[in-house]
Amino acid sequence: MSLLEINNVSVKYGDLVALRDVSLSIKQGGIVSLVGSNGSGKTTLINTLSGLMECSAGSIVFNGRPIQDMPAHKRVDLGLVQIPENRRLFPYMTVLENLEMGSMTHRSRDKRQDNIKKVMHLFPILSKRSKQIANTLSGGEQRMLAIGRGLMSDPELLMLDEPSIGLAPIVVQEIFKAIALINELGTTVLLVEQDVNASLKISSHGYVLENGEITLSGPAHELLGSEKVREAYMGL
């Protein structure tokens, strides 16, 4: 059975259709990439899954439960966790407080201390910065903190929106390594990326979103080899 099943989801901004008839399925365990250019609807889709936006048609089933009408905060308690684009940290809170904010749900509250240790182990730099105010961190550190905060919610499916955007190549590598490690430790990952090459390389499956529609899908290695993907997204 799939962990997440999206069936014919459409989303509108007023009259503008942002997503049309999107269907997508994510099995337990792997990393699934959602790739596409700017404005193709990737963030809209991830926000619809999180409940920040409403879908006008279709259904979203998570762990066998329809969730399309569930408010955003309840979805987190089911283990459906988004790490938003641009980090969206709480800028005037410390690193530690930001991490704590990830564990305010019933699901994760009791595991707070354990999860803090795990995050600090994954990103040792955060333990050095634990008393620092979040908006004084470097871009890469902020991204690590955002991922760490997401992990604090004890996700079953972790959705990352453009985790590599705006970072130096060496930091990007570190982030992708961390994502692969998170997955190995048992968390299913939905990775939304503009860096098609890097994200498909660590993924098992991929979906290509164009103008609000899924135009291509399949095993990641097939997409990597496909003429269309190489031409459109890798400039090859």
Binding site: L52, A72, P84, L89, F90, P91, M101, M104, S153
Partner: peptide, 21 residues
């Protein structure tokens, strides 16, 4: 109290933490 501050600083981010605004 921390949830109150979080909501004040970034409401949508707080919702993504499972906080009910």
């Amino acid at each position: 109290g921390k949830q109150i501050r979080a909501i004040a600083q970034d409401r949508d981010a707080a919702r993504l933490m499972g906080i009910n605004p």
